[in-house]
Amino acid sequence: MKLLYKYILLILCYIIVVMLLRFIGIDPVKLTHSALLSMTPLALAALGEVVNEKAGLVNIGLDGIMLMTAAIGVWGAEASGIGYIGLLVGLLVGGLIGLILGVMSTYGKAIQIIAGIGVNIFAYGFTPYFIMAMWKFPGIRIPPKEVLAKPRTIVLNGVYFDISEVTILTVLLALIFYYILHKTPLGLRIKACGEMPEAADVAGIGVFKIRIILSTLGSALAGLGGAFMSLTWFGGVVKEISAGRGFLALGCVVASGLEPLPALGFAFLFGFAEALAYSVAITPGVKEIVPYHFVYLLPYITVLVVVSLFMRGKRFPRALGLPYIKE
């Protein structure tokens, strides 16, 4: 019940902030719409990483995965002619990378942070290479409009509101993950793998199996987020489309203390900061005074402040980031 009051209070705060922003000429509906668009890839990557870290693996390659799947998703959409197939391709490619990383980190006992750095650097090179190889044009690809997976428009009392199915799926996923982690035996098993893999192993839980499956799932969601960025949100891909979003997602993960619902909340907050930065940067009256470069700092500063405030007192799985060596 207390929790419910908290959420109502947060929603009220949001409405007040948005209404205040109306005075400098920012449309609240449009702002909410772009905040939701901006939230979705962050939340998908963050939710995937939450369950992945619960089981004890760290994947800091999210940014690279999102970048690669943004480009490969566009290719998938163009090859099939259907935007949703593009999203699916992003999901599958992300999952494949997650599977490889999962096997490396369990059976291969890889150093997970270095593997993640490797994925990121590979992606920073592979994405421009892929764009050039596929479309013979450096650095950018705008696919035809028909193959995009644009959000649906809903009309409510004469107010037009755009929302994508993927956004709804993301919110549902947060609820499902919350339920699984806290109310089912499976959730207990996942947490056991992260807290004490030796004990989980003795209890007959397949530590490696669970870790690999969750690594695959986590990266698949990041991949869906990447394809969402290019196909639903921006309508094209540039070679630096991810702009550190994988790390913003990691910020959500650590600030939430590995809880799905707060992670979703932080993703919305960071998405809102980003949407606000974009709309403030083009608001007449502001853009002449403040260079857009400084407005764009907003999401990154938000992450630093939020993470430093909320990190305190958060507990992380004991075996997080350590390879489990079977005796």
Binding site: A110, I117, G118, I121, F122, G125, Y129, M132, P138
Partner: peptide, 19 residues
């Protein structure tokens, strides 16, 4: 071909070093 291929190669080398 994009000159960024060299960076992808570096990434792959790091992945092998992580293992």
């Amino acid at each position: 071909m994009s000159s960024e291929l060299s960076r992808a190669i570096i990434g792959l080398i790091i992945l092998v070093i992580a293992l």
